[in-house]
Nucleic acid binder design. Structure first.
Lengths: 242, 242
DNA sequence: CGCTATCTTGAATCCCTTCAAGTCGCGTGG
DNA sequence: CCACGCGACTTGAAGGGATTCAAGATAGCG
């Protein structure tokens, strides 16, 4: 189910048209973006940009999932964010890339060359406004995640992660909702600041407790949503918004 | 050494004039800010805004240090950021406050009423540009901190924190540089995702290892900067930028 | 159908926390 | 100016949650 994007695909029919950096643009502004954009696809597992690379392109994720991470010299890795469709890659004003970006699934990007894009950011308030809004949303999400990393137990971390998967899932409310883990156990571990064995053990424990049920390694059902939320450590209506 | 700020203190002589949200403003734009600003001082320990509060004012920290934190229902708290002079408080576009803001030392704020400030953000690109820049800087800092919280050991966390204190210290390079911890052991613990006992033990260990030396409870010297950096787990030139 | 990466489970270990008992430094008041 | 008192800090010992190391199971691919 690889989607094909032509170089001059019209923005009007773009799946992320109303959530990406271009969300507030009018037709004229879209036309200017169309002039400088190009699509590029990465296979699952492929690096997209690496820390220290010179920052030559910005991009929006159109389809697929990418991870933003940092690896220490001795190999310890922390995932600091997941990039979903409509999320932005790159930081205007920086010369170099700060974190590694890796394709988790197959990923299609809508890329912009740096210079012309920065020019647009300066000239088109609808773009800079939307970028600021997105940056502030991500800042909030990062801070919520800091609470998880610094203070939550393994079980709370995993429950929070599962809730996030459920909340972000685009699947509409069905009679029996089935969800799919977007990451391997190891990737989840690197996102939650744990080891893959701990992820596996805690998922088994939650299965034994009747909170979730697995069908294969990736697909799962929520058997007890209240218990899942209870286990997340978040209060009634808070939680990760991302 | 309490500084007195008059209600109509001129921005031109403001200590954070060139780093705060107003950094890029010209004289006309400053004049518009001066119309809607007012100073307010909080004593050490006092809450400034609370999670869930209606967001009625934005502010820049002029002097002092404030903390941004979240406390879970059972009392576990995580500090997600320190607010130093020139840092901004509040999030345009939100109705409610997301994190607790507390005065760590005596704090002076330059406050703006919400509506008129949001209007200025829309109309003055110099403000929105600077705000985006600051938001992106903070996002980067938050992500670096996520690596610390998720993957570093207690010793690495504390070494990184001490390096941050040194880096942010406004003290010019002196023959023998003395620094001061801006936080209590408990506050440091809540910032690093540890307990206050662990902070105390690790500081003692680093003292025994000849890396640092204390004079009283807050003041310290770096005896071996290379060893401190070595202990931080960061590679040569990376680290927290904040 | 078989192979391999991914995952599960077990056992031992360890780092950090928890609980507890002091000690120290600093500001206040005598 | 010094003594006092309390909050902040230090240190110790025990406990526990997560990691590490290791062996096997399973799913999903070719």
């Amino acid at each position: 189910m690889t989607l094909i994007f032509n170089e001059r695909e019209k923005c009007g029919s773009c799946p992320i048209r109303h959530r990406a950096v271009c969300a507030r643009c009018d037709d004229d502004e879209l036309a200017r973006l169309e002039e400088i954009k190009s699509y590029k696809t990465f296979e699952a597992g492929q690096p997209i940009i690496w820390r220290g690379d010179e920052l030559v392109t910005f991009a929006s994720v159109v389809t697929g999932i990418a991870s933003l991470s940092r690896t220490m010299e001795d190999g310890r890795t922390q995932v600091v964010g997941l990039l979903l469709p409509s999320d932005f890659i790159g930081r205007p004003g920086r010369e170099y890339v700060d974190f590694d970006v890796t394709a988790v699934t197959e990923v299609t990007l809508c890329q912009f060359q740096r210079k012309p894009f920065e020019k647009l950011v300066e000239e088109v308030p609808h773009i800079s406004q939307r970028m600021m809004e997105m940056a502030l949303d991500e800042l909030n999400a990062a801070r919520e995640w800091m609470v998880l990393l610094g203070r939550k137990t393994a079980r709370e971390k995993i429950a929070t992660f599962l809730e996030m998967v459920v909340r972000r899932s685009t699947i509409p409310n069905q009679a029996v909702a089935q969800y799919s883990l977007p990451l391997t156990r190891e990737e989840i571990a690197n996102f939650l600041g744990l080891t893959l064995e701990t992820i596996s053990r805690q998922l088994s424990a939650m299965k034994k407790d009747g909170i979730i049920e697995f069908e294969g390694r990736r697909n799962f059902f929520i058997k007890n949503l209240a218990a899942l939320h209870e286990a997340s450590g978040d209060d009634a209506d808070g939680g990760i918004i991302v």
